[in-house]
């Protein structure tokens, strides 16, 4: 990716409110062609609303957005020829077969029969779904449904793809197929904007934007974001995670702390200095623990740190 790469999606100050809640609050970002861009955040962070506005099916209250060079706010119908949107809830017809769904969406996008057959054969192959062409979509597994959604979304070779939590409830094998197809598309120059509630999945994106309560906290490559932590992430393995938390919560040098299954993840200012301090503190309090180690930060650490410190303060205003 170069800086000259054309921005396929540009969002500027996108804002949308629903009664009692500002779903998206002055959100600005851009996605280049050939880039996989992840919108990360918990439920209610504004991911779906952002995608709907970009798909041209929900007008924003404020702000502008262009998709594939078209102004989606003022000319949503023009943009729709060049984009594909996969809603979070399965949007295909369960009483139609795999082939019938593909044909339906192919026709809506004006794909010629020969193109459609060639393209869908190739996509179904990649999705591992060749033998299911005559099956009703409703009879497919969750993962198959999502892959079919992707196939339907891709037959017209869109420049931009908008995916809303595409791998939620998808088995690991289908998930791998799914991401392989996404990388393949990105290499062909398609801009992909995908939302996810899985932070581990966010690390597969070229760039991610962290959303929390409608606000875009920051956006960068996963590596840069991790570097921004600058500090260290410590993993405390303990049979009494809650006890450890109570002890360490108010210790010096902690910027955030989160319970994990078998202990705690703690973001600290200086790993080398804090490890012995924490060990001493837990020993004094007779909290059992196995080890305190420095680990590679994940987006999850980053997210929690961002939400609980600094930028998080204004979120509760």
């Amino acid at each position: 990716m170069t800086d000259q790469a054309q921005a396929a999606i540009v969002a500027e100050g996108l804002t949308k409110s629903f009664p009692g809640v500002r779903a998206v609050d002055h959100s600005s970002f851009d996605v280049r062609s050939g880039e996989i861009f992840g919108l990360v955040g918990p439920d209610g962070a504004g991911k779906t609303t952002t995608l709907r506005m970009l798909a041209g099916i929900m007008p924003p209250d404020e702000g502008t957005a262009s998709v594939g060079g078209f102004d989606v706010v003022h000319d949503p119908e023009g943009a729709k020829h060049h984009l594909s949107y996969m809603p979070q809830r399965f949007g295909l017809y369960e009483d139609l077969t795999v082939d019938e769904n593909i044909r339906f969406y192919g026709d809506l996008f004006g794909v010629r029969k020969t193109d459609r057959e060639e393209r869908s054969a190739q996509l179904l192959q990649a999705a591992g779904m060749r033998e299911f062409r005559k099956r009703l979509a409703g009879k497919l597994s969750g993962g198959m449904k999502q892959k079919l959604g992707l196939v339907c979304a891709l037959t017209h070779r869109p420049k931009v793809i908008l995916l809303d939590e595409p791998t939620t409830g998808v088995d690991p094998v289908s998930r791998r197929d799914f991401w392989r197809i996404l990388y393949e598309l990105a290499s062909e120059g398609v801009a992909i904007l995908t939302s996810t509630a899985y932070l581990d999945e966010a690390e597969r994106c070229h760039r991610v934007a962290l959303l929390h309560q409608g606000k875009l906290l920051f956006c960068d490559t996963p590596a840069n974001l991790k570097a921004k932590l600058g500090k260290g992430v410590l993993s405390v393995t303990s049979s009494d995670p809650r006890g450890s938390r109570d002890q360490l919560e108010h210790a010096a040098g902690i910027s955030s702390l989160v319970l994990t299954g078998d202990g705690l993840h703690v973001v600290v200012d200086d790993a080398g200095r804090r490890i012995p301090e924490f060990e001493a503190r837990l020993k004094d309090a007779h909290i059992p623990f196995d080890a305190i180690q420095q680990v590679t930060p994940t987006i999850e650490d980053l997210f929690i740190d961002a939400v609980s410190s600094g930028s998080g303060a204004s979120l509760h205003a």
Partner: peptide, 14 residues
């Protein structure tokens, strides 16, 4: 109700 409308209206169909 079935959630198919959201995808349908994101296509160029008028």
């Amino acid at each position: 109700e079935r959630g198919t409308m959201e995808q349908l209206i994101s296509t160029p169909v008028t």
